[in-house]
Design a protein around this nucleic acid. Sequence first.
DNA 1: TTGATATCATTTGCATACGAATGAATTTGA
DNA 2: TCAAATTCATTCGTATGCAAATGATATCAA
Lengths: 159, 159
Amino acid sequence: MGWAAVSAGEDVRLKLVEADEPEENDYHLQEQVGFILRKAHQRHVAIFAAHIADLTPPQFAALAKLHDVGETSQNQLGTLIAMDAATVKGVIDRLKARGLVELSKHEVDKRRLLVNLTAEGREAIERLIPLARDITAETLAPLSAKEAATFMRLLSKLA
Amino acid sequence: MGWAAVSAGEDVRLKLVEADEPEENDYHLQEQVGFILRKAHQRHVAIFAAHIADLTPPQFAALAKLHDVGETSQNQLGTLIAMDAATVKGVIDRLKARGLVELSKHEVDKRRLLVNLTAEGREAIERLIPLARDITAETLAPLSAKEAATFMRLLSKLA
DNA sequence: TTGATATCATTTGCATACGAATGAATTTGA
DNA sequence: TCAAATTCATTCGTATGCAAATGATATCAA
């Protein structure tokens, strides 16, 4: 440590600080919620990829939400799956290129771009939803059922 | 829905399924741990950006870890902050371009690229760490102290 | 010793993710 | 009604994030 060479003077300062406040002087990155949140998300994405190789989580989210609510505008879909306009455009473009969704213009409001599942897209999402349940289960596997319920409740408060 | 035209027959099927298993037939994206994890992470990144505008969370993580452990190889740093080799290279390149880290070759092992904080980088991270504590606090603000402790414990199990 | 492995770093390609700027269309309000 | 504000979508630029391929170097093992 840097203060070893001048330990006498520095020691006094450190002791005073510690006497004033019980606060930890060190900063431990691995204890910060943002860092752990990022790692937990990484782990989940890896689990997802192991179960569903041909779709990313955002792509799955778009299909699942379309399956849930039916035809919507691209922007509205983005709101529903927490993606900004630029991001959702890319996701939808790739799903369209693969024939899983189709686009059409809104009859009345000419600004809107309507997105809908194709038959193939519907078949795909209905086939994948059971796998998604497995993904959720595997992600939460390190927790007991009670812990998982607590975790989901608290995580929801932060999202 | 496709079964509307044959609703009578489908209704029977659905009821039988529900009788067999108490399982929920609907799939609710907003209840899946991966989706909420992604949103919680998004919220944290937004809070981070509001407090520290000129650095991203990964860049901060790199500086904070370098401050903690001192000079290391680029790959080793990546391991410590949970980034693969390709990602950490980009982060370090940008920090180097801003004069916050400096690179050097390992004397013995010529494969390794050593990374270290510059004086400016050290000054920056020491100035920012108090803000990072605020970021952690604000991210966890929706939870009580007890809930936050529980959450951190459970989240760590998933990371 | 040397051939097979393993490690470190780089590069390429693809996929989010978001701020900011832009343009078209719609809605609002004086 | 019509100008201002808003909404929807697109585009650009920047920054992760990871798989896969490659090259250089180091280590291991027969």
